[in-house]
Design a protein around this nucleic acid. Structure first.
Lengths: 204, 204
DNA sequence: CTTATATTGTGAAACAAATAGCAACACCAC
DNA sequence: GTGGTGTTGCTATTTGTTTCACAATATAAG
């Protein structure tokens, strides 16, 4: 099953909201309720759920627990996936502490930096190694995803090392656009670009 | 002129790359060179430039200086725009130090927090106020854009305050989806969602 | 039982974005 | 000059995503 990227993003967010609903004691939810909480239309919610083949009850809506389980089957891997943070500056630390323990199936297992002050220690709760141990750790820990928060000038070099070590997903927070082969997946979010886009929109 | 959102994002990135090229002493650039640096096709570059009405020379390519100037006319406001960071935790500080001085026409003028340890001081180079001074500062400094990095439970409340104070663009880095009226622009980037999307892609 | 209401599920239309294809043109080598 | 090459600019097409419109269905009320 080949899901549109946007749908996958929304599934992740549906799940988070549904966890909250479960915590509040809800068992069922209507498409328009979920839509309202996510600031989109009920049609879009139903379309997304149709794409993953989930059916609700026409009077009670969707069974939250079942839906969460199905989203889990789609997004999560049974054995979980291991993540590393490369570049333990402000942003790297922020992401690490923010994410810590948020998801069962996604675990940040290590961080890397080239600053000897930070390496071979626990930083923000996870072990931080020198960048030259990257390959070793990636292979030993079976790391599949890397978050890239290094300085711009190091980006290309580090990205190359990551791919050579076998990382298949890169979340690039640097301002340098990357090129990856087709078997590697890349998500890029640049703060300056986001702010400039807003500046353009606000201006008009 | 109504530009596609994706085109605006790319324009921001073209400009950054073009600055580098100028620094290297280049005066002209071909669509395929720019495309290669950004990991897209030359057709896409030319179409973006067509949309903003820029014409290059058929043999020498585009005049970098002129192109940068035109992108500036589209994205920047003459008088510049003022930005605030709301929530001076790890992420807020990371964004502040990362962005500081990166752009002439976009200036971070203040930060806000509810932690008295951080307020009424300079944090990461900018003045940090208590959140209850938000409206006052937004009006005094003519702030048009806010970066939201507060705790999830405070998100809705703070977003409401921002809009009441007259902020027209919100960059939401919290995990809580926001709803905004049509005259306010919103960009949302959630780390968990990005990682889960990668997890889905890597899995298959 | 019948009707009114609220919901899901989905084909079709509309919209947005990326890609392909090609004419027009400038330059170079000869 | 003339032909070859490499480039831009633009139209048409394809692809991906969202929205519309409505049939089907379950429930509740009369």
């Amino acid at each position: 099953m080949e899901l549109p990227g946007k749908t996958v993003e929304r599934l992740s967010q549906y799940r988070r909201i549904l966890y909250d609903s479960i915590r509040e004691g809800k068992n069922y939810i209507y498409s328009h309720e979920l839509a309202k909480m996510m600031n989109l239309t009920s049609v879009q919610v139903r379309r997304d759920l149709m794409l993953i083949g989930y059916s609700g009850s026409q009077s009670k809506g969707y069974v939250i627990k079942d839906l969460v389980a199905l989203i889990g089957k789609i997004i999560d891997s049974d054995q979980g996936q291991h993540i590393i943070i490369v570049g333990m500056g402000n942003l790297g630390r922020a992401i690490t502490s923010y994410f810590a323990g948020k998801r069962d199936k996604l675990v940040i297992v290590a961080a890397f930096d080239n600053d000897l002050q930070k390496t071979d220690r626990i930083v923000a709760g996870i072990p931080c190694y020198h960048i030259n141990k990257l390959r070793e750790v990636v292979e030993a820990e079976k790391v599949s995803i890397a978050v890239l928060t290094v300085a711009p000038e190091a980006t290309h070099d580090v990205a190359k090392k990551l791919m050579e070590a076998g990382v298949k997903g890169i979340l690039n927070y640097t301002s340098v656009p990357l090129t990856v082969p087709p078997d590697v997946y890349l998500e890029e979010y640049d703060i300056v670009t986001s702010l400039e886009k807003l500046a353009y929109l606000v201006k008009s």
